[in-house]
Design a protein around this nucleic acid. Structure first.
Length: 359
DNA sequence: CTTGTCGGCTCAACCGCACA
DNA sequence: TGTGCGGTTGAGCCGACAAG
């Protein structure tokens, strides 16, 4: 799935004429916008806006900012051909959100549209005229500097989409002391491990969680005490004969076992620590273990795609045939597990969430 | 400066009513 | 029953403003 980054959006807007006065998408909105300046690569974007109909002029107004944070949130929300509503993505927040929306619509890959809205009242559904949405169509750009409406048959269901929820968790205190990492990064790492455990549980896998992460408290219970979490690798049938492999596996973030005979995936969660260490750990494990069908997986944020691909393609890691499991894919699968008690998932199904990255 | 909340503006849809 | 009219609502949008 193609994704956008903040620098993509900023670069698009940077193509727009700086001295042009732009209108909003909705013709009823009388205000106008001018781009004052752009900080590459990720913003902020500086703009002015005023309302000529009220006798205002550019000179009356001070410069406002479209923040990098907002741009990132919007960039993350886009998927090709899927309309998004900025007010909703941003929770109605950010002052300049309508400006960002308008400017994007002037760039070639973005269209605006009004998808229908499915209204559900007491079991009765009807389709109403919907809100304004932006549509990303990377494969059919329009002319720069004009607004183009996309006619779409798409209808939006306003049932909550796939959101993943994490209950609060407590990290083992020794872990915080020994690592200088940001606590939020540790928390994110742990959330993903928990998601992986629950996905595994749903699929009837037994899960190994790294020795030093078993103390994480989730819902007042240590991860290591959860049903289906493997207490000791030495007792796992597959591993009994391979002491060296057990040693190598102790610090691997997450391993799934199935039926005592299969090992669907070996996973390393890499949050900003660089993917090399995870790849090394998995490579070390693979070398100590007889050839066995499994998947070696790097679980990493979506925006680390380039880094993951680059590292996984280094010659020393080539035989891992690394898969990339993005955080968003983990959360999508986790959300599916929370909402629908999916069963009978095949290995092929997993494969569609874990991309191959070898060139 | 950034971000979240809240409210104002506008217009279309809706409603109730009178009248043909 | 259908139509026209005036008043009322509220969806949709944008931005003022306060808190961080």
């Amino acid at each position: 799935m193609r994704k956008l980054s903040a620098s993509n959006l900023v670069a698009f807007i940077n193509q727009l004429e700086k001295n042009t006065v732009y209108n909003y998408i909705n013709p009823r909105t009388k205000g106008v916008i001018k781009v004052e300046g752009i900080d590459l690569p990720e913003g902020p974007i500086r703009i002015k806006r005023w309302e000529p109909a009220k006798g205002q002029s550019e000179n009356d107004k001070s410069v406002e900012h479209i923040s990098t944070e907002m741009i990132w949130r919007v960039a993350n929300a886009f998927n090709p051909s899927a309309p998004i509503n900025l007010d909703r993505v941003l929770g109605g927040s950010y002052n300049t959100r309508s400006v960002l929306e308008a400017l994007l619509a002037y760039t070639p890959e973005f269209y605006f549209c009004y998808p229908g809205r499915i209204e559900n009242k007491g079991g009765q559904t009807s389709i109403k005229h919907g809100h304004k949405h932006l549509l990303w169509r990377p494969d059919s750009p329009h002319r720069l500097g004009i607004l183009e409406k996309a006619e779409t048959e798409i209808v939006i269901s306003e049932m909550p989409a796939l959101d993943a929820f994490y209950d609060s968790l407590v990290l083992p205190s020794d872990q915080i002391e020994e690592q200088e990492l940001d606590i939020e990064v540790l928390r994110r790492h742990a959330q993903i491990q928990i998601a992986l455990y629950f996905i595994g549980k749903q699929l009837n896998f037994r899960t190994w969680i790294a020795q030093n992460d078993k103390g994480i408290l989730y819902q007042n219970k240590r991860i290591g005490e959860y049903e289906g979490v493997i207490a000791s690798l030495k007792d796992e049938q597959l591993m009994i004969a391979y002491d060296d492999a057990v040693q190598a596996a102790l610090l691997i973030d997450c391993i799934w076992f199935k039926n005592g005979k299969l090992m669907p995936a070996v996973m390393e969660v890499e949050h900003s620590t660089g993917v090399t260490s995870g790849l090394s750990r998995m490579k070390n494990f693979k070398d100590k273990f007889p050839p066995f069908p499994t998947r070696y997986v790097i679980v990493a944020p979506d925006e680390d795609r380039d880094k993951v691909i680059k590292e996984a393609n280094k010659p020393q890691f080539a035989d891992l045939d690394t898969r990339y499991f993005t955080y968003s894919a983990v959360e999508e699968l986790y959300a599916l597990c929370q909402r629908r008690k999916i069963k009978g998932v095949t290995e092929e199904f997993l494969d569609c969430y874990m991309e191959r990255v070898l060139n």
